[in-house]
Simulated assay, not measured.
Amino acid sequence: MAEPRPWDNRLPAELLDVVFSYLPSLADRACCASVCKTWRTAAMWKEHEAPLLLMLSKSDAGPSCFGVFSKTSTVHPAIRARARGARFCGSSPGGKFIVARSQWRDYALLNIHSGEETALPDGLLSEGHEVPFNLRVGLKPSALVILAAAVSPELNPQGDYIVAAIAAGQHKAVFWVRGTHQWRSFEPLLERQEFWPRLMLEEFEDVIFYGSQDERTRGFYFLTSRDGFLKFGRQYGSYGKETYVYGSGSGCRFPSPPGSGQVVAGRYLVEWCGSLLMVQRFVSPGHGTVSFRVFTLQRSNDGRKWGWRTSPAVMMGTLLFVGRGCSRAMATGRDRPGCIYFLDDAEGFPDVDSIIRTEKLYRCSDTGWFRRVQDADYVEKIRPEGPPPDCSPWIWFHL
Rank of each mutant, 00 (worst) to 15 (best):
L223C: 04
L343W: 08
R101E: 08
T74Q: 05
A33R: 13
A265P: 04
L15E: 12
A50T: 13
G368S: 13
S284E: 09
L343Y: 11
F342E: 02
F66C: 15
A150M: 09
G348Y: 10
A33E: 09
R281S: 07
G85S: 14
S91E: 01
E271Y: 07
W104L: 04
I98T: 02
V207L: 03
Y210T: 02
A148Y: 07
D351E: 01
R293M: 13
G62L: 00
G338Q: 02
H398V: 04
D344R: 10
R334M: 02
S256Y: 03
I208T: 01
V264D: 01
D302S: 09
N111G: 00
K241I: 08
A42H: 06
E116V: 10
A346I: 10
P12D: 12
Q213A: 14
Y210E: 05
A164C: 05
R334N: 06
C339D: 08
G138D: 03
S238V: 09
E215Y: 04
G303M: 15
T38E: 13
D375V: 07
G266I: 06
D122M: 06
S392Q: 00
F209T: 01
P387F: 11
G90D: 14
T41F: 02
E3K: 14
F370L: 13
S126K: 02
A313N: 13
T224E: 07
A173K: 01
E215R: 15
S248N: 12
S291W: 06
R357H: 11
K37A: 04
A173L: 09
G303A: 15
R357C: 12
I355C: 12
F20V: 03
T41D: 05
E380G: 10
G368M: 09
P77R: 12
A83H: 05
F204A: 00
P387E: 04
D377E: 02
G348T: 07
V270I: 15
L109S: 01
V75L: 07
P24Y: 01
P255G: 06
Q262F: 01
S284K: 13
F69P: 00
Q193R: 14
P51I: 09
S142C: 07
W104G: 08
